[in-house]
Design a protein around this nucleic acid. Structure first.
Lengths: 214, 214
DNA sequence: AGTTTTTCCGAGTATATGCTCAGGTTAAGA
DNA sequence: TCTTAACCTGAGCATATACTCGGAAAAACT
């Protein structure tokens, strides 16, 4: 039976580990899951393999996770949460003294660095995990991207205070995300990241500047 | 045994059908494959299911395909080829009398329409098929996008003859592709396609116009 | 110490899926 | 018509994977 008809409870943990010992076990399972995903892909991931690589028994896996979907979901959630945190942290650093184009470049640079760091895992999550984009954390991250863009504008120098329509906001965030994704996951080695990030941030900034002020 | 260690011959057909009867069988298998992918996802796809839905025996499937990867690959190749043809066809229609922004809008509109038409299948192919982006047709399509952009520029009115760096070309194509992908596969219903396409083509055009002429 | 809760174990069962093969049927060629 | 090649069949074998369950060991609690 395919995994598609199951309830969405398969994405949640069965029970939270209470003692230090079990917390270490769960951590080992998650690390094992990441290792297997990077090396063998989602199709090569099985609960038995997770148990073996993590050095625990198969029974222990099912003690905490209802199935492999839940392990992957947990792993993805933590990565997505890390990214969301990064965005919020960067936003907190941005104030009225910041130059819009500089702030934009820093945002994109930090985001790119984080994605690049986890690129092997990210590739599998994005391209092979069927339920990734219906995870709450995914939607939260996408929303966060737009929020950060909007808030960042408000906080930078007054001369850039412009009114941004939802369409524009959407276009900017999807353009940026699409380019970052392509660079990290699909770009040929010949394409250096720095020039593209420079050009991208410059473009986004000029785009905003050219809009009617509010 | 995971499917990851196999040779890349799994992506090719075993033998070409010669008679009309067998060509119909293969066609039925491909249609069945598409149906199953749309309804059950890649994880729900099996050679047995393809045989059943197509109304042929499992033996016949293995007569023409070495495994399910080859069926999916064939299906994807035809969809990608259709897209590449569309781009080339549009390019042939573009001449020096065309306005750049109008031509750009038509390109994006046609591309979006095609993607939207196949969005259910496309979603599964993009997000669940591990080997999609290593298919020759995928690379060809990506290359075609950049070529069309570059050629389209050369063919439109002289005033737009500008020199476009590889970085810019890359940035424009990934931005456009990223936005189209997000719109077709992930956008909330509230986001209408037309305004976004209008804004996108306008943006790309203005971007080019603002560059130094060659 | 005694009791309860948490954690862990792993052989074993059920099931799904990939794929073969020996042989039958239909169409094309001579 | 006879021969050959193409095409089709589906029961069945091999394997892999999800998941259970009875019970043991360790930790926490009283």
């Amino acid at each position: 039976m395919a995994a598609d008809h199951r309830q969405h409870t398969v994405f949640k943990m069965k029970k939270e580990p209470r003692q230090a010992r079990s917390r270490a076990s769960v951590e080992a399972m998650l690390q094992a899951c990441a290792r297997i995903l990077e090396r063998r892909g989602y199709a090569g991931l099985s609960t038995n393999a997770v148990a073996e690589v993590a050095g625990v028994s198969i029974g222990s896996v099912y003690e905490y996770f209802p199935g492999k979907e839940a392990i992957v979901a947990r792993l993805a959630e933590s990565l997505l949460a890390e990214t969301t945190d990064l965005l919020q942290g960067r936003l907190a650093m941005t104030d009225q003294r910041s130059e819009l184009n500089v702030a934009m470049r820093h945002f994109l640079g930090a985001l790119h660095a984080l994605m690049h760091q986890h690129r092997r895992l990210l590739r599998v999550l994005v391209f092979q995990v069927p339920y990734l984009h219906q995870l709450p954390a995914t939607r939260k991250l996408q929303q966060e991207l737009q929020t950060v863009l909007q808030e960042g504008l408000k906080r930078t120098h007054e001369q850039y205070r412009v009114s941004v329509s939802p369409t524009t906001l959407y276009l900017m965030s999807t353009s940026a995300a699409g380019t970052l994704m392509h660079m990290v996951l699909m770009a040929p080695p010949s394409m250096g990241a720095e020039p593209v990030l420079d050009a991208l941030s410059q473009r986004l900034t000029q785009w905003l500047v050219s809009m009617p002020a509010s």
